[in-house]
Computed example of a mutant assay.
Amino acid sequence: MKLRRAVWLMLCLIGLVLASGTVFAQSAKKLFLFNWSQYMDPAIIKAFEKKYDVEVVRSFYDSNPQLFAKLRSGGASQYDVIFPSNYYVPRLIKTNLIQPLNHDEIPNLDNLKSRFRDPPYDPQDRYSVPYQWGTTGIAYNADDLANVPKSWSILFDRGVNPDNPFALIPDGQVTVAAACAYLGIGWRCKGEKSWKKAAQLLIKTKTRSNFNGFVSGTPILQQLARGNADAGMTFNGDYMFYKKRNPEAFSDIEYFIPKEGGELWVDAMAIPVNAPHPKLAHKFINFILKAKVGAQLSNWNAYATPNEISQPMLKKSLQKPPITPTQNQMKRLRFTPSLKGENLHMFQQLWTDIKSR
């Protein structure tokens, strides 16, 4: 009997040890972020880790298509918070890759500017929360390409730029929209007829000897700084971020919104459908929406904030071009449209054809 009791007590102790180990493993949480590079002040991450006693693990992508592909291949159960652009949010909703938000857990939603609430790409903010906003335009070497027009012609007109190396963004919708804008169709071009005209221009552009390929917005800035390219599509905040940190390398590099029009975009925060820590993800989103954190974020990465309460704490340089567009510039900016169904399928086939030529 004593032996049985001793064995029983030992088994109970082992069970308690195992149980306590399980509790400890569950409490030692991590938050997994999948974000654009150079898009989050490390000090904000440290502050969140300290406040909630967690570890934040970050991974990075450089285009919306890359984010989408990763989520479809299992990433929807690997990450807690992602940062898609506005026109990709409906696609993520349609493919069941993100989950509805619990607004009761995000009280700081009230800090957002009214024009960023209830957006057309996500009515009632059901699945996403605005993170930062900006523009897509052209960065170029003003010394090597002196006196060129502030136009998409730097990329699409051999007569304007016969020799200087340039690149286009690998995001199909953005690049096709730029071609449409140059052709006079407008940034929000839709339909087979408009897309085919843009495709003909892009295929022709690819054959030019000074075409450097499809390069994302951040890497093209690095190529410009090294002198490996003289023009390319990029984002206003990335341009300011690198210019401030390396003014000598960027002394001749300028950014502009083409006269034919450019992209206005909003990057959002969303929670993948099978996120490992959804409650912690809600806490993180709410944390980013705090007034001081929103200002700190924009002051670090040089993008505009959708946070109304953060405005008085922003650097003066963020409250004017190229970060905050003028009223005239805003008239030339458009959101990239969301595609679905047959239109999306048709566009994907067209973009595949463009890249393969």
Rank of each mutant, 00 (worst) to 15 (best):
residue 9 L to K: 13
residue 9 L to S: 09
residue 10 M to L: 15
residue 14 I to Y: 10
residue 16 L to Y: 00
residue 23 V to N: 08
residue 35 N to P: 00
residue 35 N to E: 06
residue 36 W to I: 06
residue 38 Q to M: 07
residue 39 Y to E: 04
residue 40 M to W: 02
residue 43 A to Y: 07
residue 43 A to T: 11
residue 47 A to T: 07
residue 53 D to A: 12
residue 55 E to S: 14
residue 55 E to P: 06
residue 58 R to D: 13
residue 59 S to N: 14
residue 59 S to Q: 07
residue 63 S to C: 08
residue 66 Q to K: 05
residue 66 Q to R: 10
residue 71 L to N: 02
residue 74 G to M: 06
residue 77 S to K: 15
residue 77 S to D: 11
residue 81 V to W: 00
residue 82 I to L: 01
residue 82 I to Y: 07
residue 82 I to C: 05
residue 86 N to H: 15
residue 87 Y to A: 06
residue 91 R to Q: 13
residue 93 I to S: 04
residue 93 I to Q: 05
residue 95 T to G: 00
residue 96 N to E: 10
residue 100 P to E: 13
residue 103 H to C: 03
residue 109 L to C: 09
residue 119 P to F: 03
residue 119 P to A: 00
residue 128 S to H: 00
residue 129 V to S: 04
residue 131 Y to P: 06
residue 136 T to A: 14
residue 136 T to F: 14
residue 140 Y to C: 10
residue 141 N to Y: 10
residue 144 D to K: 15
residue 147 N to G: 11
residue 147 N to E: 14
residue 148 V to D: 03
residue 152 W to D: 02
residue 153 S to E: 15
residue 154 I to D: 01
residue 155 L to S: 01
residue 155 L to D: 01
residue 156 F to D: 01
residue 157 D to E: 12
residue 159 G to F: 11
residue 160 V to G: 08
residue 160 V to H: 04
residue 161 N to H: 02
residue 162 P to G: 09
residue 163 D to P: 01
residue 163 D to M: 08
residue 167 A to I: 06
residue 167 A to F: 09
residue 170 P to Q: 07
residue 171 D to Q: 04
residue 174 V to I: 11
residue 174 V to F: 03
residue 174 V to Y: 00
residue 175 T to Y: 06
residue 176 V to R: 02
residue 179 A to C: 08
residue 182 Y to K: 06
residue 193 K to T: 00
residue 203 I to P: 09
residue 204 K to M: 03
residue 205 T to P: 13
residue 208 R to E: 06
residue 212 N to F: 12
residue 215 V to G: 04
residue 222 Q to N: 10
residue 224 L to A: 14
residue 226 R to F: 04
residue 227 G to E: 02
residue 228 N to R: 13
residue 229 A to D: 03
residue 231 A to Y: 14
residue 232 G to T: 03
residue 235 F to P: 01
residue 235 F to H: 07
residue 240 M to V: 10
residue 241 F to G: 11
residue 246 N to G: 05
residue 249 A to F: 01
residue 249 A to M: 08
residue 250 F to H: 03
residue 251 S to Q: 15
residue 252 D to G: 00
residue 252 D to W: 02
residue 252 D to Q: 07
residue 259 K to I: 14
residue 259 K to P: 03
residue 265 W to C: 09
residue 266 V to Y: 12
residue 267 D to R: 14
residue 267 D to C: 11
residue 270 A to I: 05
residue 271 I to T: 01
residue 273 V to T: 10
residue 273 V to W: 02
residue 273 V to E: 10
residue 274 N to V: 05
residue 276 P to V: 05
residue 279 K to I: 08
residue 279 K to N: 15
residue 281 A to C: 11
residue 281 A to T: 07
residue 283 K to R: 13
residue 288 I to Q: 08
residue 291 A to C: 12
residue 294 G to V: 00
residue 296 Q to P: 00
residue 298 S to Y: 13
residue 303 Y to A: 08
residue 305 T to D: 11
residue 305 T to W: 10
residue 311 Q to S: 03
residue 312 P to Y: 13
residue 316 K to D: 04
residue 317 S to Q: 12
residue 325 P to C: 06
residue 327 Q to G: 02
residue 329 Q to T: 14
residue 335 F to Y: 15
residue 335 F to V: 05
residue 340 K to M: 10
residue 342 E to D: 02
residue 346 M to A: 15
residue 350 L to T: 04
residue 356 S to N: 14
